[in-house]
Design a protein around this nucleic acid. Structure first.
Lengths: 246, 246
DNA sequence: CTATTAATCTCGAGA
DNA sequence: TCTCGAGGTTAATAG
């Protein structure tokens, strides 16, 4: 097996002694490596909420940015975690490897106690590249700024992220009759919440502009739910179907 | 090293050959084990959105429930993933280990191509216990049902999850004067969205009950933002401060 | 720091 | 299957 010393890309121990495991984790933290453990453990969390998790086999990942993830064999989401910026510590208590992760603002603490450690690995990670993502709300905005007729013939965008007392309007513009138009963009099918958001912007515009001119609110998304459609109708708002791509 | 055969709790290969790695991953999928890989790879995703990720060292976890997670050394969130229910496949193409994860409704596909594989592990996971979590919205609801005076003296809960055309009201009840009260609960400080939600419930009640009786809407949370407070005021809604615990 | 909103949000419940 | 709302949401961005 390669990588039993701390300078290798990988350092892996299978069924390690308590001392060997502790030393591997500590030196992994020290060297700012990605550290993973697999074994039988309990987990306690206290902070914004609090939780306990009884004994079971879990996969624990500690990242050099201070985040920690505890995964079971189910679900995309970790069963417990801490966000980046936490301080990790490894120690031994009552003959068990104990991982502690803490942060402040808010005060939060995660403790993992291993009854049995099946594997410890530490990895040196080199990753220069970044993700490029398409099909976001920003793509939908760019599509509409490129071709405002997707909203309606004669629509003229005047600003993006135009600020109001209720928040920023995605696209602020006017229609062919010179009426003010607030456009709210959503990349996918939306429910009543998005209609409420648009309604608040239109209301804020009416108060901000305090004139009697008609102000239109248009929700642009691939589709809306029935309740959202009702709410649009009742609030005198409009809907235009458009998607971020295709 | 223990666990080089597929029946052990762990099966780990460090710097494996392409064939050995492929065989380990395939037998891990077959045996419904938790499979992890670490190595230099690219990732492509196409589905609800689409993304590409260039070469870099990443940790990949495939769970027996069909989920897959690709982690870099930063961030709590995976850089790419698929939800549970996907079909995993491992294969070799152009001298590289390729993992493919697919699902339908919606059609989504994730492809990981390894240029170099530093480690492959498969784990047999036994985990009978479930997480217990405190400090949730349900805890806040139970607190208030135990002691309705937390809302106000004389408040009487009549139903939880009371259905309206706009959705379910957390706590439906009446005040000491017999007026209908809709209570919306939030476990933490809230913004304008929660006020909109409460407003929709109250409006729906007014339409559903179609009488002229006054209907009160009360938001219960630890605190509200300034804009939320304004919006409450403007919509004739009320706020009571309470938290899920302490 | 706080506030606001997007997200391949995820997840669970209910129809 | 879709819809809806909670979440220790997380993450990014603006103030």
């Amino acid at each position: 097996m390669t990588g039993t010393d701390g300078d290798s890309v990988i350092n892996t121990l299978v069924d390690p002694s308590l001392d060997a495991a502790t030393e591997a984790v500590e030196s992994g933290f020290e060297a700012e490596r990605l550290v993973t453990l697999f074994g039988r453990c309990t987990v306690e969390y206290d902070g914004r909420a609090s939780s306990t998790l009884g004994l079971g086999d879990r996969h624990v990942m500690c990242k050099p940015d201070g985040s920690i993830l505890v995964h079971t064999d189910e679900s995309q989401q970790p069963v417990n975690w801490q966000p980046p910026g936490c301080t990790h510590e490894a120690g031994v208590a009552e003959d068990r490897l104990v991982l502690e992760s803490e942060r402040s603002t808010p005060d939060e603490r995660l403790v993992v106690r291993f009854e049995q450690i099946a594997q410890v690995s530490t990895f040196a990670v080199e990753d220069a590249t970044e993700l490029t993502l398409d099909g976001t709300e920003e793509d939908l905005r760019n599509r509409i700024l490129d071709d405002p007729e997707l909203v309606e013939p004669g629509f003229t965008p005047l600003a993006t992220e135009r600020d109001t007392a209720a928040g920023a309007i995605d696209i602020f513009g006017e229609d062919s009759d010179g009426r003010t138009v607030a456009v709210e963009l959503k990349r996918k099918r939306v429910g009543p919440d998005a209609v409420g958001q648009l309604g608040r912007y239109v209301d804020a515009l009416r108060r901000d502009l305090h004139d009697d001119a008609e102000i239109r609110g248009i929700l642009v998304s691939p589709s809306v739910t029935d309740r959202a459609a009702e709410l649009l109708e009742r609030n005198g708002l409009e809907f235009v179907s458009a998607a971020p791509r295709e």
